[in-house]
Amino acid sequence: MTPFLLGLIGLALALPVPALLARARWTLRSPGAAIVLWQSLALAAILAMSGAGLATALWLVSGDHPSEWKVALHAAVLGFGVLVWARFWWSAWHSWRDTLAGRDRHRRLVDLLGEPHGLAPAVRILAEETPVAYCIPKRGDNRLVVSRGTIETLGDSSLDAVLEHERAHVRARHDLVLEGFTFLHRAFPRVLRTDAPLRQSQVMVELLADDAARRRTGDAALARAIVALAGSSTPAGALGAGSEAAVRLERIRRRDPRGDRLAALACYLISAVVLVVPTVLLAIPWMLHAWSELT
């Protein structure tokens, strides 16, 4: 029974639970804790399927003359657990390789076409009238890219907010956070997963970068920058300041420190529950029982 319960938990955490949680607005109050929550859901789904596969393997070894249909069902659960892990490592390798290659190509392109900023060596200014701003992260060799239109549209304080927003992405390595979500997202077959964790993580890293910019320039300067850059395009593999404008502006307008603390507490509690409870209540007792039978 344990393999099937773990399998059901894994499927629930991969599809219906994230889809329902994505509709909640309270997670936006504490983006750092919300990222932990979304990571916990994705990781718990994979761990539950892995536990189901391991429990199945132990059952197949320790079972006494099981019926054919039980063997078939357990073999299916075991096969699905193996599939999830194989897809995870396959997607991790390909996504990591393709993302690094794409960023390297784009970095060389902006170095060729962009004008260096005299006071900020990592900044490149593109001769483009449309307001655009994004970063190309790489440890020790990142680029902050802004267009001429961004500089002409924004005042000094709002431009500082944009650059601080992008620097926050680079400092905190938000690109690694998003890549990790991509790996976890692709571990499950398309019909058994939702895009909600990946989409929500993209929103949360923007909110975290906004918090860093707000501390430096204030709410008003950041809000003007968000409006000016709303909807601007961002190359693949980069993190841009123009995405999720409506959500970000709403959070600035309704910021509530007490509500932020309560949201963070709720996120951490749920994260602990989804990671610990299935293991403690299901996996460990069954594995101890199976081990005692083997020995």
Rank of each mutant, 00 (worst) to 15 (best):
G242M: 05
V203M: 06
Y134H: 02
G79M: 05
L178D: 04
A238D: 13
A57W: 08
F188E: 06
R23G: 06
A241K: 10
T99Y: 04
V36Y: 06
R167S: 02
V17Q: 04
M287S: 08
L192F: 04
R215H: 09
A45H: 04
Y134V: 08
D210G: 00
L192H: 01
A263D: 10
G32T: 03
E129A: 12
F181W: 00
L54K: 10
G218C: 14
R224M: 08
A228W: 14
A122Y: 11
D256K: 15
P137C: 06
G149S: 03
S292I: 01
V146N: 10
L60M: 06
G7D: 07
A92E: 13
T234E: 01
G242H: 10
V71P: 00
A76R: 07
I270R: 06
R105Q: 13
L239I: 03
L275N: 12
D160K: 15
G218Q: 11
A92T: 10
S62G: 14
W93A: 13
G102L: 12
E152H: 15
T2R: 14
W96N: 11
A238Q: 06
L83G: 03
V247L: 03
K70F: 12
A238F: 04
A34Q: 01
S157D: 15
V36K: 02
L43D: 13
C135I: 01
L43K: 00
A127G: 02
L112D: 01
P278E: 12
R139K: 15
R251T: 12
V205D: 02
E152Y: 14
A220E: 05
G81A: 14
A120P: 05
F181Q: 01
L54P: 09
G32Y: 00
A161W: 14
R105F: 12
Y268P: 09
A241Y: 09
A213Q: 14
G118M: 00
T153D: 14
G259E: 08
A92I: 08
A86L: 13
D256F: 13
A172L: 02
A196M: 03
L184H: 11
S95L: 12
G231Q: 05
R224V: 13
P257H: 13
W90Q: 15
